[in-house]
Design a protein around this nucleic acid. Structure first.
Lengths: 237, 237
DNA sequence: TCTATACGATACTGTGGAGTTCCGGATCTT
DNA sequence: AAGATCCGGAACTCCACAGTATCGTATAGA
């Protein structure tokens, strides 16, 4: 499900022999080279299994089977299940939220509404499933918590912060607003709705958040007219 | 750590012989009776282990040891680990959030601030740990999801809703406010902060939420914001 | 007192998964 | 071509834990 074939892979343990001075055997590697183009496929398989079964329900065999790889291959590249999962989560950054590609409609509400796309919702939902599968080990493995936070929540919060900051810069909202807190409202409440309430994070819910929480808290009047709800402002440019 | 010794215990499988008409053996039970006063201790031990290790890391032996009970005793009362945990979660309702005992200071801000007590924070933190430990199985076991939602989040949201509704009733805030959404802001963001960000949910954070998110969204001016920004429509009469 | 049962403690069984090892075949370097 | 290393696949070891069985002891009712 990961489309970005050139996804950057930061394998935690590279497992390559250290080039020790005076050790000629370490300088040139003979034999077949490791096919690193398969790393992303394996990590994607790990993410898929993780989302479906959670960390504890996931087995290395499941990942290997789904990636059409051998279990030994996985252990040649990652020293343990833990490190494989940490790597998989860390490598799932997705470019949907680059500041360059964010909407720019001229109003904060237009920008926020324009970010609601079926693709974006679906993507967020899958990330939430992964987060749920990781939850139990976050307290025991801080590296996992950091990886999850950096890959799943921070990018979305950063996008919201960017849009809000731009609204501040053009004078739409007051610079005294607590943007750092408010940009976390949507991710937090979407997570709660998905993981605990088990209700869908659909367009209506997100519009409710924007008009009932975010904009009022920023000193703007939410659009309370149901007839106008969901209308996206015409693209700027 | 559960002080309420009279905690109600809804054992899922009571395991008592059904009094079948015509079966004399089922009517009178001989021998030593089961000591049901120990049920709460066992469930409390299960909750403690659950919070510390998560569901998958928790073993029946850990619970038995902490409860100073034998493993067989646990299996005499609950048919499986799953049912024990469901029962433990369902029985953890705590009376700190009765509508009768909620603060009544005359203003919504006063009420919300008055709910910030060290005891309350500590209690919420432990519940969050339990929730994290359950996360991975919520999707697989709906009964668990319901038990967790009912015992952990719903009571707090209900308390917030009660305070906000009272503010509506006395005309402090507009009845058009989306109270059902706003009463979930604090629990959601506290959960995010605890479980993913791994920062403490302290008094400062909660005050920030109240003054930077909740009150502005309800059309009230937060305490820390000196500038009077966009005004929300006055209460409809 | 006698009997049936609960109790804590401990040993035991069965299963499932992490991690390892080996195999035949493929692919790279020299 | 030859040797080294990778590959997928499968068998293997090791261990932790759910659940069961059995012990001697304690306590309830008859």
């Amino acid at each position: 499900m990961i489309r970005n074939a050139e996804m950057e892979v930061n394998v935690v343990a590279q497992l390559e022999p250290v080039a020790v001075a005076g050790n000629p055997a370490a300088e040139t590697k003979l034999g077949r080279k490791r096919d690193h183009t398969r790393d992303p496929e394996i990590l994607a398989a790990a993410l898929a299994v993780l989302a479906e079964t959670g960390f504890d329900g996931m087995t290395i065999d499941m990942v290997a089977t789904r990636a059409k790889a051998g279990k030994a291959t996985l252990y040649r590249r990652w020293p343990s299940k833990n490190e494989l999962v940490i790597d998989a989560v860390a490598c799932m950054k997705q470019g949907d939220l680059d500041p360059d590609r964010l909407p720019d409609t001229g109003t904060l509400r237009g920008d926020l509404v324009a970010m609601i796309k079926p693709r974006s919702i679906e993507d967020a939902e899958k990330k939430m499933q992964i987060m749920a599968g990781l939850m139990s080990m976050l307290s025991a493995t801080p590296e996992m918590a950091d990886a999850a936070n950096n890959a799943i929540v921070k990018p979305r919060a950063a996008a919201n912060r960017f849009l809000m900051q731009r609204a501040v810069d053009r004078g739409e909202i007051s610079p005294t607003c607590d943007i750092d807190t408010l940009c976390l409202v949507t991710p937090s409440m979407a997570a709660y709705r998905t993981l605990i309430e088990r209700k869908p994070v659909d367009r209506d819910f997100l519009i409710t958040l924007i008009d009932g929480v975010l904009l009022p808290a920023l000193g703007l009047r939410g659009d309370t007219d149901p007839a106008r709800r969901g209308k996206v402002a015409p693209p700027a440019s």
